[in-house]
Amino acid sequence: MAIKKFSSKYEAAWSDANQQLLCLDTGTWRTKRPVVNVEKCTYCGLCAIYCPPQCMKIMPDHFEPDLNFCKGCGVCAKECLRGAITMMPEGDFDNEGKKG
């Protein structure tokens, strides 16, 4: 019997982001998703500042959640002073993200 090829090039437990940047599909954790009303957005940035996974994408005139990672916690909606973000049930959306 022979030892199979080792999976790590290291002698000890080293984690190397260059080897692989691990990433979870946290977008699937959501039961609700933030929906931004661009008209109401005053670009105050609070949603992006407080978003725990920091997944608010900076658009030219508003902020947009990265739904690949957004866990649907709702902090952005809660912190938005203008009520520009609404948490909508995931079930309302089809696979392409369009409201069904």
């Binding site: 999976s7 982001a17 080897q19 940047l21």
Partner: peptide, 11 residues
């Protein structure tokens, strides 16, 4: 923070 010995969650 720890990562795994095949990769890391951060840089």
């Amino acid at each position: 923070l720890y990562g795994q010995n095949v990769g890391a969650w951060h840089k």
